[in-house]
Amino acid sequence: MSDIHNPDAHISAGHPKSSPDQIRAGHPKSGPANGDVIIDCNLHELYYGQFKAVRDTHIPIRKNKITAFIGPSGCGKSTVLRCLNRMNDLVRGFRFDGHVHFQGRNIYDRSIDPVAVRRHIGMVFQQPNPFNMSIYNNVAFGLRLNGYKGSIAERVEQALRRAALWDEVKDKLKQNGLSLSGGQQQRLCIARAVATEPKVLLMDEPCSALDPIATRRIEELMTELKQRFTIAIVTHNLQQAQRVADETGFLYVDTTQGGRTGYLVEYGSSQQIFQDPREEPTKQYIRGEFS
């Protein structure tokens, strides 16, 4: 379990890790999370090496809700999202000031194993990235990692159905995942991520490679999935955020201090952000005056 231990992540260096169960159990009293906030993300300053990528971003993600991150390219949406399941630990020189609480526990605590975190907080990436193996094995990969005891075939089918891919691939499950079209690959990745039933699903522009029909299907999937999971999604598609997200955070780039540092401008219910934005950058962005 502790193999992932990454010497660069100062936060995790060389300490005994806790098992997934400990995270699952949670310690409601040890963190500020209250009520239905499942992930409380508070980034004060975040660096890639010397580069200050994000500052002052506090986003509470609510359970069984869809939270959208919007903002211009390069403002740090992916960065923030990747903080939520410690994917940034893989980047050498990544460090940040602040905390991310998951079910009341700081996932960057020294006692927490990032691998365990990622098993509870799954991710769909900006670009489709299926493994070089059969469609079936792609979806089964996570199940096997978790030592899933039930019928893997059933779960694979269920996941593929949920990702609106089953009908297209049910006759060729043995074929290589890379043989699918780009949009199909992305849905395969979504199936792979939901197969293990993580508590939270992070989706980084999951629909950017999809046609409108598939996009609609994925949106339906998200609304369906939020009964069971919590979803955080990054999107460039404002209509999509409006359609599916319960809450929306708008990030923008601050160039005043020399660098290009992203920060959270405004966060609130999607209705409020889109109908009645309070901050000037948000208003301009939503009116489409820059992107």
Partner: peptide, 9 residues
Amino acid sequence: EASFGLGAT
């Protein structure tokens, strides 16, 4: 990343 993202060591 895909593999790590699924929680592989």
